[in-house]
Design a protein around this nucleic acid. Structure first.
Length: 281
DNA sequence: AAATGATACAACCGCCGCATT
DNA sequence: GAATGCGGCGGTTGTATCATT
């Protein structure tokens, strides 16, 4: 430690903040074409003014074709709670058990929904416990709330999703925000999930591009769903919802697609061309 | 209708472990 | 065996959006 490691990137020269549609397209196109052997070198090769880490994160958490979007199902939430009880805050490990879900997403869900739910649940049980036997009520260590239930790992799983008004509110909110096709959290999103996600999805970081051509279709479906292509605008839609608004932009409609890119202001489509060598142009 | 608060989530930061040299 | 580089991970922050007052 204390070796004074060089920073992963020159923060003066890299762009930060939300990703623009153009950047996403560049990254997706590049990875589809060349894979991601070297994250650090990738931004330069792809013509992105981004830190390699940022590219990696963006790809893993958002742009991978096999990322499952939409609300977490009851089963998934239960699994997270259960896994968290055994694994703690090992989000990547937990994510490995939930195909299509990323550690970041799981972490967010835990911190927003599930933790609060467990806290309120725990408060209820604690009050009951205290009346019975105050010595049984032990507080959790550090941030590991799950241990508060301590005695029985499966106990909290029986908790209803809409356990209280707060959950109801947040569930509604998340439905709004995610613009999911299904208003019911129990409905399994099918867009890119089981059928189109390769079954060998392991961890968020381990999804390669073993068969890029097979993924091209879903890739552009994804892009179509993510950005309002028809509006010819680069305005980002709240959240990529590939589940219900996927537009079929295949390579057959390349011209249209790249024309759309042309319409982006500072972004030059021929720049992409030089990077990804788009066929048929 | 505006102001304020609460919530959700994308993105960043810094550390750690593994692989390579 | 030590030094270095890189990817990965978990914690935290910033910001957009929605709900409430």
């Amino acid at each position: 430690m204390g070796k004074g490691r060089a920073p992963c990137c020159d923060k003066e020269k890299v762009k930060r903040g939300p990703w623009s549609p153009e950047e996403d397209l560049r990254l997706i196109s590049f990875i589809q074409k060349h894979g991601h052997q070297n994250w650090r070198a990738l931004p330069k090769q792809a013509g992105l003014l981004r830190c390699g880490k940022s590219c990696r994160l963006r790809w893993i958490n958002y742009l991978r074709p096999d990322v499952k979007r939409g609300n977490f199902t009851k089963d998934e939430e239960d699994a997270i709670i259960r896994l968290h009880q055994t694994l703690g805050n090992k989000w990547s490990k937990i994510a490995a058990h939930l195909p299509g879900r990323t550690d970041n997403e799981i972490k967010n869900v835990w911190n927003t929904h599930l933790k609060k739910r467990l806290v309120s649940k725990n408060e209820n049980t604690q009050q009951k416990d205290e009346s019975k036997d105050s010595s049984m009520a032990t507080s959790s260590s550090s941030s590991c709330i799950s241990s508060s239930s301590g005695k029985n790992s499966g106990e909290v799983l029986a908790m209803p999703v809409s356990d209280n008004s707060q959950d109801f509110k947040t569930d509604q909110l998340s439905n709004h925000r995610s613009r999911s096709s299904s208003s019911s959290p129990s409905e399994e999103p099918e867009g890119l999930s089981s059928s189109s996600i390769s079954s060998n999805v392991t961890n968020s970081s381990q999804v390669g591009v073993s068969n890029p051509e097979d993924q091209v279709g879903s890739l552009f479906n994804f892009i179509g769903g993510y950005y309002d292509v028809n509006n010819n605008t680069s305005e980002e839609v709240n959240k990529p919802d590939i589940l219900d608004t996927a537009l079929d932009i295949s390579f057959e409609s390349d011209l249209e697609f790249w024309n759309m890119l042309d319409s982006f202001g500072p972004f030059q489509s021929d720049e992409i061309e030089s990077v990804v060598n788009v066929p048929g142009t």
